[in-house]
């Protein structure tokens, strides 16, 4: 291949990358520009223009409508993330380092949960939650998210722990530590990256989830994603407020990812999610 041809190809590829990057940046531009406009400065014909001076009125009025639901979402996402990460770590530990009868069957059953279309179990789920008094509560949603998050979290920890040499388990055994001791003294300290990956994954999935939230809760117990859809669906809410609401709802996951994303990508690259 001639050098000229090679260089042209290279340039073409990077032009493609830059064009794609622009496509990715456009929505960010629209959100920021529109959220910082005042009601009167928002019109369809001016949507691409920069605001004349900053105004936080859209963001404030979005916050006024979404504030309580933000509380719900935090009450949901934080405990559900912590609980599912801890249970997932215990499962992954048991399934990766302790060979016992039926362990592969159990692992298969857990993975089965990943392939259930959520729409299909919503009706019985609603019945079960109703029967135990958790329908239309944040507690009920926590339970559902922990349960349906377990397959992926277990998989993450199982693959992560599988990379830890078995000799360490043996060493722990010789020193007389049991099942629990091996976990707390050997695996737990080594599993921080696993917790970061599982934690970020779960937090994002739970915060962003809409289907469970819309089917299993009613106002005022709804997470922020449902409240956002309600705002977007109403004709009376201005576009700038809708944009500001979309921005507000995206901020927590964006912050998590911008602060911890490096570790998340590193953890993924280290192979915590692979078949």
């Amino acid at each position: 291949m001639s050098i000229v041809w090679k260089r042209t190809l290279r340039i073409l590829l990077y032009v493609l990358l830059i064009a794609l990057a622009l496509l990715y940046l456009v929505p960010v531009y629209v959100v920021l520009v529109t959220s910082l406009k005042t009601n009167s400065a928002v019109s369809l014909s001016q949507m691409w223009e920069l605001p004349h001076g900053l105004s936080f009125s859209s963001i404030l009025s979005a916050w006024a409508q979404l504030g309580p639901n933000f509380g719900n979402s935090f009450e949901l996402a934080i405990p559900a993330t912590l609980i599912s990460a801890v249970i997932g770590a215990l499962n992954g530990y048991a399934l990766s380092k302790w060979k016992f009868r039926g362990s592969s069957v159990i692992f298969f059953l857990i993975l089965f949960g990943m392939f259930i279309p959520y729409q299909s179990v919503l009706i019985p789920l609603l019945k079960v939650l109703d029967a135990i008094g958790l329908y239309n509560t944040i507690g009920g949603l926590i339970l559902v998210h922990v349960v349906y998050g377990l397959p992926i979290v277990t998989l993450i920890f199982r693959n992560y722990f599988a990379a830890i040499p078995y000799d360490l388990v043996e060493a722990g055994r010789i020193d007389g530590t049991g099942y629990w001791g091996v976990f707390t003294y050997i695996f737990l300290p080594l599993s921080i990256p696993g917790f970061v990956v599982a934690g970020i994954w779960q937090f994002t999935q739970i915060w962003n989830n809409f289907l469970f939230a819309v089917s299993l809760t009613n106002p005022p117990n709804q997470p922020v994603t449902v409240a956002l859809v309600n705002i977007a669906g109403s004709q009376t809410v201005q576009w700038n407020v809708q944009m500001a609401s979309a921005l507000l709802v995206s901020i927590p996951t964006l912050i998590v990812y911008i602060l911890l994303g490096k570790y998340f990508v590193r953890g993924l690259l280290a192979g915590s999610v692979k078949g």
């Binding site: 962003n208 956002l228 977007a232 709802v249």
Partner: peptide, 8 residues
Amino acid sequence: PIVATSIV
């Protein structure tokens, strides 16, 4: 969240 970016 899909619900947020789809508005955009």
